[in-house]
Design a protein around this nucleic acid. Structure first.
Lengths: 110, 110
DNA sequence: GTCTTATGCATAATTCTCTTATGTATTAGC
DNA sequence: GCTAATACATAAGAGAATTATGCATAAGAC
């Protein structure tokens, strides 16, 4: 597991990009996908994920669709067009940040 | 300038690594060196830097030496042997984190 | 010669984002 | 029947930064 400190500020970026790559998903599914992609090194907690989803929705980046699976609720999230644009921006911003950090820390990131 | 959110959790890593590469430095000097290395994209604020230096010193990673330059004080910081070890660990941890993020975000960092 | 900028330290109040804890409820495995 | 996994959600608390403030010296502009 990674030091959770480093995760700060990257959660929105992760959520947006995963949704961009995998289409509509529900919260629990996102946590599992990130766990897979990170080989269990990044474990999203619910207390962080759901508020983030709600916030991104409130900002117009995500739209929702609630489906009942039998008696259990599933709330699917998908990017709006604004969300797609924000996703692009956030990823670029993150990559730029890493390039800067490579220079400051004098390390190669590959 | 980068979104300051991303900086969270990386400040200690930056301070430790810069001190490892440049030997003893004083606070203001560190801000300037980071500004240089990052081409003004990372600007350390004093409100973040000084508490971080004090914390690292309290943890035994840094030792200090105060010098008077004329009437102005300079407090030099240098890594202890524990600090050198911590610096190594933090950089490795950061690079690992970036590798994981590359997988999750599906981007190349080079 | 005064005014602004740069140098140099430091701390406090506030904000933001996450962790941890808690709550509710359904479904699957043994 | 019990435990683990699925599935949502919110609240209290912690941690790390920003912003604001304070003090003080030195250098450069005009």
């Amino acid at each position: 597991m990674h030091s959770p400190e480093l995760l700060k500020g990257t959660l929105q970026t992760i959520v947006l990009k995963v949704l961009k790559d995998h289409g509509k998903m529900y919260g629990y599914e996102i946590t599992q996908r990130v766990k897979e992609l990170s080989e269990s090194r990044l474990l999203l907690t619910e207390g962080a994920l759901y508020p983030t989803l709600h916030k991104l929705e409130a900002e117009g980046c995500l739209k929702t669709e609630t489906v009942m699976m039998g008696k259990r609720m599933r709330k699917y999230y998908a990017l709006t067009s604004e969300g797609r644009s924000t996703a692009r921006d956030r990823v670029v911003e993150f990559v730029d940040f890493i390039k800067t950090m490579s220079n400051v820390l004098q390390v190669e990131m590959n």
